[in-house]
Every structure is written in structure tokens, then in C-alpha cells.
């Protein structure tokens, strides 16, 4: 057999066997068998020198060509085999992605605090600062300085828990208005929030509940501004352009004073049990700071005006989430609380 014939036979044999290789191991042994130091092709290449001059060139060129061809073939085959072996290995590791997570689920903030923080953040974004005060506070901050005359029926509006003659459980967060204005000259733009207490317990009243209250004092703050602030607030808590109604009312610490109603969120004003067929739901109180309050904290009512507003957080939570009884908010039954996971 002449060397050219021999080489061509070798090439065919190699290509046939490479084509049949299904494992990287086999492929490697084929590489060694043909292209290794003692491989068949290598052996032929080594023997080329012994050939006659005229055959040497032709045979040399052919064997190099076959070597390159086989190398390329092995490389291609190898990457194909590697890919399919990785694929098999990964298939072995198949995960049932529908299984439940490992470990406990995230907790839930209390719905009242979720609502409270949501509202506080609206005001903080608008540029109001947060202010705070104690829950047991002085009688004078809760009543006297807020223009509640002694022996006046206005004091019945908040049936109050007393500690002694001087201290009480604050009946509203308005105590923080006084505390703030006593130490901060105008302008003032604050939000106060927290627990307040009244002697009252039924389906819609809890002896402990939460309030959020805002106060803005500056030159030229007006009733129309109050209408604007309330509009922005309710647009953001409920939905844009929710119907709003201001009703004249009475709070000793504001004049003029107003109650604010929103269009009933259950029946959209058509009339239902929730709104007692009125189409309106009472949502907050507000007004222009009474000059007597300014006098009590040493702010000149002829130079400054102020707007103030306040709301019960439980009331808003109950309306937003259709909670029928305020007491459910404080029984802390996990089946109840967990319904509000993800609100914060």
C-alpha cells in the first residue's frame, strides 16, 4: 500500500470512529490513538522522512491536512459532547419551582400603623415636619391653652381620663400644637400623630385610638388654603377628586371650624347603611387656629394665621378596609392582623 492510500484509509477510519464517539472519554482515547505521540497518524508522519524525495512532499502535505481536519473534528465533537453532558447534569438537578418557600413568611405591620405612616408620609413629602408629645400630658395643653373654657360643655366633646388635677391622658394630639408653638416661633408646619384616649367604648369608639394632626402657621395662611391642603390629603389617601364636603362645626381651638365629609366609599353617594343613606362619611375636623390659642402661646394673631386639621386613624383604616368594628383592631387576633400583610 502506498503511503497516500494508507493515509486516506486512516482518515476514513478516524472520521468514522470519531463520528461514533458519544462520550468525552472515548473522544479523548481516539485523539490519543490517532494524534497522540504514538498515534497512528503521528507514526506515519514520523516515517515520512524515509520516503523517497518525490513522494515526501506530497505525503507530507496530505498528512498535515488530515491532521488539521481530525483536530478540528475532535474540537467540534468535544464541544458538542460537553454541552450535552452539561445539559444532562442540569436536567438531573431539576427543581420543582412550585414548591413553597423555605422558612417563615414575612410579618405584617398593624393596619392602624400602616395607615398612620402612609398619611404621615404624605405630609412629610409635602414639607411638613413631624412633632411629638407624651400621652400623659398636662391639663393646660389639652384644654386650657386650646381655648376650652373651664365649666364649658365643649369639654364634654372629649370625655377625658384624668390622672390627677394636673395630668390627664391626652384626648387629642392637639396638645402637640401647643407644645410646638411654645418653643417654635412661626412659621410652623408640623404633623403630630399617636395614641389618644377617651372614655368611650362601642362598635365605633375605642378608649384608646390614634390621631394625626397637622398645623401650619405663617403670615397669610387662609381658609382657602385649608381647603386646598384637605383636598390634597384626601386625594392621596383615597382617590383623586373624591367628593369632599365642608360642614361648619365647632372646635374650641379653631374658628372658623369645619367637619369634612367624603363621598361614601361604599355606595359612591347613592346611599347605604355605611353612610346612613346620606351619601357622605365624616372623615376629619379642621379649621383656622383660634386667636385665643395664639394668645395662649404668645403668637400675635394679628400678624399670623394658622390652619389645623386632625383625623382618627382607625376611622380611616375602617373605611379603607371595610372593617366593621373598631374593637377588632385591638384584639390582635392573628387571623385578623395577617389579612393586612403587605400594606407596609
Amino acid at each position: 500500500m502506498n503511503p497516500v492510500e494508507e493515509l486516506n484509509n486512516l482518515r476514513e477510519e478516524a472520521l468514522r470512529e470519531l463520528a461514533g464517539a458519544e462520550e468525552l472519554k472515548v473522544l479523548e482515547s481516539l485523539r490519543v490513538a490517532f494524534l497522540g505521540k504514538k498515534g497512528k497518524l503521528t507514526t506515519i508522519l514520523k516515517s515520512i522522512g524515509k520516503l523517497p524525495q518525490d513522494e515526501r512532499k506530497e505525503t507530507g502535505a496530505l498528512s498535515n491536512k488530515i491532521k488539521k481536519e481530525l483536530e478540528a473534528c475532535i474540537k467540534e465533537k468535544s464541544s458538542t459532547l460537553k454541552a450535552s453532558s452539561l445539559e444532562m447534569k442540569m436536567a438531573d438537578e431539576r427543581m420543582d419551582i412550585t414548591l413553597p418557600q423555605h422558612g417563615s413568611v414575612t410579618g405584617a405591620a398593624h393596619p392602624v400603623n400602616s395607615v398612620l405612616i402612609e398619611i404621615c408620609e404624605i405630609f412629610i413629602s409635602m414639607g411638613f415636619s413631624m412633632a411629638e408629645g407624651p400621652e400623659v400630658d398636662f391639663e393646660k395643653y389639652n384644654f386650657e391653652m386650646l381655648n376650652f373654657p373651664e365649666d364649658h360643655p365643649a369639654r364634654d366633646m372629649q370625655d377625658t381620663f384624668y390622672i390627677n388635677n394636673e395630668l390627664l391622658l391626652r384626648a387629642h394630639t392637639s396638645t402637640v400644637q401647643i407644645r410646638t408653638m411654645l418653643v417654635q416661633p412661626p412659621p410652623v408646619a408640623i404633623i403630630a400623630s399617636g395614641k389618644v384616649y377617651r372614655k368611650d367604648a362601642d362598635q365605633t369608639h375605642s378608649p384608646m385610638f390614634h390621631q394625626i394632626e397637622g398645623l401650619m402657621v405663617d403670615r397669610a395662611v387662609t381658609f382657602k388654603d385649608l381647603r386646598g391642603i384637605v383636598r390634597i390629603l384626601l386625594d392621596n389617601i383615597f382617590h383623586k377628586d373624591i367628593p369632599i364636603r365642608f360642614r361648619p362645626s365647632f372646635f374650641p381651638f379653631t374658628e372658623p371650624s369645619a367637619e369634612v365629609d367624603i363621598g361614601c366609599t361604599v355606595c359612591n353617594g347613592a346611599g347605604c347603611k355605611m353612610c346612613k343613606d346620606s351619601g357622605w362619611l365624616e372623615i376629619m375636623g379642621c379649621g383656622m387656629v383660634d386667636p385665643n390659642v395664639f394668645d395662649s402661646v404668645g403668637i400675635d394673631p394679628l400678624r399670623f394665621t394658622g390652619l389645623a386639621f386632625g383625623m382618627g386613624v382607625e376611622r380611616i383604616a375602617m373605611l379603607k378596609y371595610r372593617i366593621p368594628d373598631i374593637r377588632m383592631l385591638f384584639t390582635n387576633n392573628m387571623r385578623f392582623n395577617l389579612q393586612f400583610r403587605g400594606l407596609r
Binding site: 412629610i124 415636619s129 413631624m130 412659621p187 408646619a189 401650619m216 381647603r227 364636603r245 360642614r247 372658623p256
Partner: peptide, 22 residues
């Protein structure tokens, strides 16, 4: 009361402070 159109005041910013405790 409802015949007074709302106006939108500028919130005074010189008194703003971040409430760290919140």
C-alpha cells in the same frame, strides 16, 4: 364653606427638619 375654592399654599421650608425618631 364649599363655595370657597381651594387654594394651594407654599409650605414654609425654613422650619423643616427631618424627624429622626419617625
Amino acid at each position: 364653606y364649599n363655595n370657597f375654592a381651594p387654594s394651594y399654599p407654599r409650605i414654609p421650608s425654613e422650619c423643616f427638619k427631618v424627624n429622626q425618631s419617625f
